[in-house]
């Protein structure tokens, strides 16, 4: 951006900016404009002070956005959260099907029971089927959460784009990276990401060799 040295420079700059229609102002551009204005009127303390406050505010806002590490959130945290939610749906579906397999066996066995026992057994089986519908509701709720995460991702992208932070070095992490024993706590692994019991047994056995 050219340096603004006079009121005429400023008027020309504003006119040029006004020609760019339908383009939302970027935080980065605003910051540069305000910076140029503070240089233009170093002796007018009233305007200078106000512009300085505005410039400081823009810098603080940029720093705060950078501190969120939007790229990390978009590339790492959101996809990870989505994968975890998908894994929940998969695991509950698997468990539900196993429960229903067992209930269906029970239904078949009820044919060999006395009518009274068969009635009781079938009432219990019905309760199992009814309870299993939780999986459908859980799946629908999780789908809603995943959609919300997608919206957050899109908004983050918009925020990064309008702040002019694309390509900038990320701010340091605000949350401490776990160390020692705390770093070992990752919770359940996603399918294929961790070891199964056979892997663990093989690993343990390898220490004995």
């Amino acid at each position: 951006m050219e340096k603004i040295r006079s009121v005429n420079d400023l008027a020309r700059h504003i006119n040029e900016a006004a020609k760019i229609e339908n383009t939302p102002p970027r935080l980065e551009d605003l910051g540069r404009t305000v910076g140029a204005l503070t240089t233009a009127w170093p002796n007018n303390r009233g305007i200078y002070d106000q512009l300085k406050r505005l410039a400081d505010f823009i810098e603080r806002t940029k720093a705060e956005i950078a501190a969120i590490r939007p790229d990390d959130v978009k590339r790492e945290h959101l996809p990870k959260a989505t994968d975890e939610l998908d894994a929940i749906v998969e695991a509950t579906a698997g468990a539900t099907n196993r429960i229903m397999d067992a209930a269906e066996v029970f239904t078949e066995l009820s044919n060999r029971m006395t009518p009274e026992d068969a009635d009781k057994a079938m009432n219990a089986v019905t309760s199992i089927y009814e309870a299993c519908s939780f999986q459908d509701i859980t799946g629908q709720r999780i789908t809603k959460v995943v959609k919300t995460l997608k919206v957050i991702e899109a908004r983050l992208e918009q925020m990064v784009s309008s702040s002019g932070l694309e390509g900038m070095a990320p701010a340091p992490r605000l949350t401490a990276v776990p160390e020692g024993d705390a770093a070992l706590l990752n919770g359940p692994a996603l399918p294929g990401a961790g070891h199964n019991q056979d892997d663990i047994d093989a690993l343990l056995a390898s220490f004995d060799n």
Partner: peptide
């Protein structure tokens, strides 16, 4: 009609009962 296989199975079993 349902896009959740689990739900189809539940409703089928309840209908059977």
């Amino acid at each position: 009609v349902d896009d959740y296989a689990t739900m189809l199975r539940i409703v089928r079993n309840l209908l059977k009962q």
